[in-house]
């Protein structure tokens, strides 16, 4: 029974152009950011590894030739690109409500719990699909513009890919919840983009300026960025050799994980955010009078 509904929900997503309409910019952004950050990392490393700077790094006791700077670009690119699966998720329920297809959806399901569970499963799958596409695009982009020495090893890559897919799934579910609460596709899209790309960045700047960056790790965007950024920072630090403690914060900032906690704690915090919005949206949809 539930598999029938999952099949129906999956067909819903594949019989309109929305999924590839969002997949194209997702891949392009992921690829573009990976190319760009890879190039930036390479140019920085070219300066750092130049003979002029070599004296300085030697003086500090750092061997910069093994720095895997590409992981920062990967983390940043993944963070930006996962905005798209979040919007895809945001449209899952809001589009059904605004298109009034929710009526038939509920009429053909034994109950709303089953219908929404099917949606949950399908959008987890879509989050993973988008995550895979993002990781693939980012990997291709970063390989093109980074020095091979700056690339993570296989284990590092798997770690980055894992948190990339995980953050894509969580972002999708976060979107589903917000969309179910807002019920308007346009409002959902605007609110999600404004908050994730602009509003919270502003809040983070204020918090950092006020000297309380640790609060950032509790905010939705800060938490989800911490998921990928912390892994990137850890990867970098584990292979960079001796790095002064003062530089740790700078490195986390570069990775987009300023103020964020460990990757698993960041993931848990964002999971809580996702659960709050998803369950809130679920409860609203469960009780909603479909008139």
């Amino acid at each position: 029974m539930l598999m029938n509904l999952v099949k129906a929900e999956f067909r819903k997503t594949t019989t309109t152009g929305l999924w590839w309409g969002i997949m194209i910019p997702t891949v392009l952004i992921a690829l573009g950011w990976a190319l760009g950050t890879g190039a930036i990392g390479k140019s920085i490393m070219d300066v750092v590894n130049s003979s002029d700077a070599e004296n300085l790094t030697e003086l500090l006791g750092i061997d910069s030739s093994q720095w895997q700077v590409s992981v920062f670009g990967m983390a940043r690119s993944i963070n930006i690109a996962t905005v798209f699966p979040m919007i895809f998720g945001g449209l899952a329920i809001s589009n059904e409500i605004s298109r009034r297809t929710i009526t038939t959806t509920f009429l053909t399901a034994p109950n709303r719990v089953a219908a929404l569970t099917a949606k949950l499963l399908v959008y987890v799958a879509w989050g993973a699909i988008f995550g895979l596409a993002i990781v693939a695009a980012v990997s291709i982009g970063i390989v093109f513009t980074s020095d091979s020495a700056a690339l993570p090893d296989a284990a590092g890559w798997i770690a980055m890919a894992g948190v990339g897919i995980l953050s894509s799934i969580l972002m999708t579910m976060f979107g589903v919840g917000v969309g179910a609460l807002m019920t308007s596709p346009i409002a959902t899209t605007i609110v999600l983009i404004l908050y994730m790309l602009i509003l919270e960045n502003g809040i983070q700047l204020v918090l950092a300026a006020q000297g309380v960056p640790s609060i950032i790790g509790f905010l939705p965007n800060g938490a989800v960025n911490g998921l990928t950024g912390s892994v990137a920072a850890n990867l970098f630090l584990s292979t960079a050799g001796v790095v002064p403690d003062e530089l740790n914060e700078v490195i986390r900032g570069i990775a987009g994980a300023l103020g964020a906690f460990d990757w698993w704690l960041s993931g848990l915090i964002f999971l809580v955010w996702t659960a709050v919005f998803f369950l809130g949206g679920w409860a609203a949809t469960q009780r909603k009078d479909i008139t």
Partner: peptide, 16 residues
């Protein structure tokens, strides 16, 4: 859904 064909619309709910 305005962009879904009649047959696909019905196949969605046939699956359900």
């Amino acid at each position: 859904h305005p962009k879904r064909t009649a047959r696909n619309h019905l196949r969605v709910y046939a699956a359900a």
